[in-house]
Design a protein around this nucleic acid. Structure first.
Lengths: 236, 236
DNA sequence: TACTTGACAGGAACAGTGTTCGTGAGTAGA
DNA sequence: TCTACTCACGAACACTGTTCCTGTCAAGTA
């Protein structure tokens, strides 16, 4: 092996293996994988870059910042929504509840996306299609225009808050024993409060601590909201 | 001034000025000041320590971690709640709405506390007193026990979500011109959507973008929730 | 063909976060 | 006096989002 005497001898650079070029889609794919596997807190630019075997700075050629990546995650999750095609005036309330259940299902399937969704005005195509569907359900139920318009604000806000709360509490990591232990302790605590100051809390200690697992509390919430919307029709 | 010849001569240490000892209360005070002046994102351990003219590590002798400091901030905010003394069966719905308005007022007065509040089970004394008051309002309205118990979950969750959303959107920093510009742009966007796929969104573009300033949307939300709860009474 | 320009990749560094580790000082009790 | 405990707090750790800078490659132009 012969080196030209005019050519400096430097350590050989490790060959850069040819890689698939970065794209926005690949970035969102990687972020989504982290989100689903490890939750929202795992979705850092460095972690995403790691999954893609690159450096975090490379991501900025494709997404403006972390906030934009968050928004792309929300849009990606929104693509999983499955809503009924045909609103039914006889069943609009159940259809509305189904829509809310579907929203929660999607958010649970993508832990942490609720955190990113809060505060966003949903303008992606898929999100707008969902909005249109929900508006159709509400109009099938004869909800007045202004109420329907504001309801598509209220509904995702409530569902998102429920999903976000679950995320914050790390609810999926709780075993049934954990839940039961927590509930029992809380009930005991409520029952031990001073009776002169907390008579109702004590009397309702059982009710206050029921429904901690399963979806009863969420079902209650959507029932209340749906009934409240229905009451707007009866007012006209 | 004479030094013993066996005693090493080292630079004089700057005298530590005597300081008021750190206490948990002083830490929360300082954090609260930052929260109110600059919002939740400004409440870092370093910033709090700076306000107190100490190092961040010193805080950990008094609060376990940032999460606990967050909880203390929520408890501190809860002390500002003013709820009616005497529930009135004739006006329980308006009293309930007033309670929700008061919650939102307190959270707005303490920007960012909603973020800390989400996911917390409110067990501080002041929070429990508020819960008791709201339960009293609901019982005055003849809400069934289980519904009342779950309503004290639903109600703070909704209000907290509204407050949190405002925080995320940085809503207080918006001028009326900002809002109008945003609303106009959004309305134009909705009206420009393909009519075959978004007929209702287009038809309701005005309604969808109304109420962006002021509290109309929040008032709508609490009206729906209150009406939904009232409907539970009529069912019995 | 040679040069220029623009886009992308990505390391190093910046400014910031929460937290731990280790050390020194002060106090109370034996 | 010695010991143990508590508090204060600097230095360092591990991590975050982002910018700055350099190198490479491809396309376009002279």
């Amino acid at each position: 092996m012969t080196h030209s005497p005019w050519q400096p001898i430097s350590p050989a650079k490790p060959a850069r293996t040819p890689k698939e070029p970065l794209t926005r889609d690949r970035i969102v794919d990687a972020a989504m994988r982290l989100l689903v596997d490890q939750g929202y807190d795992a979705v850092s630019m460095r972690k995403v870059a790691q999954v893609l075997d690159t450096g975090p700075a490379s991501l900025y050629a494709h997404v403006a910042n972390k906030k934009e990546l968050d928004q792309l995650l929300v849009d990606r999750a929104a693509e999983e929504m499955r809503l009924p095609e045909q609103p039914d005036p006889e069943r609009w309330q159940e259809q509305l509840k189904d829509a809310m259940r579907e929203m929660l299902r999607v958010m649970r399937a993508n832990p942490g996306v609720a955190r990113a969704a809060i505060g966003q005005v949903p303008l992606g195509e898929r999100a707008l299609l969902s909005t249109e569907r929900i508006l159709a359900i509400l109009k099938a139920g004869n909800i007045p225009d202004q109420a329907a318009a504001w309801a598509v604000d209220l509904i995702p806000l409530y569902v998102t808050a429920v999903a976000f709360e679950e995320t914050v509490q790390g609810a999926w990591a709780w075993t049934p024993e954990d839940v039961e232990g927590f509930v029992t302790g809380l009930r005991t605590y409520f029952e031990s409060l001073p009776a002169d100051r907390f008579p109702i809390t004590i009397a309702l200690a059982g009710s206050l601590t029921s429904g901690a697992s399963g979806d009863e509390r969420f079902e209650f919430g959507i029932t209340v909201i749906t009934a409240g919307l229905a009451a707007l029709v009866q007012k006209t």
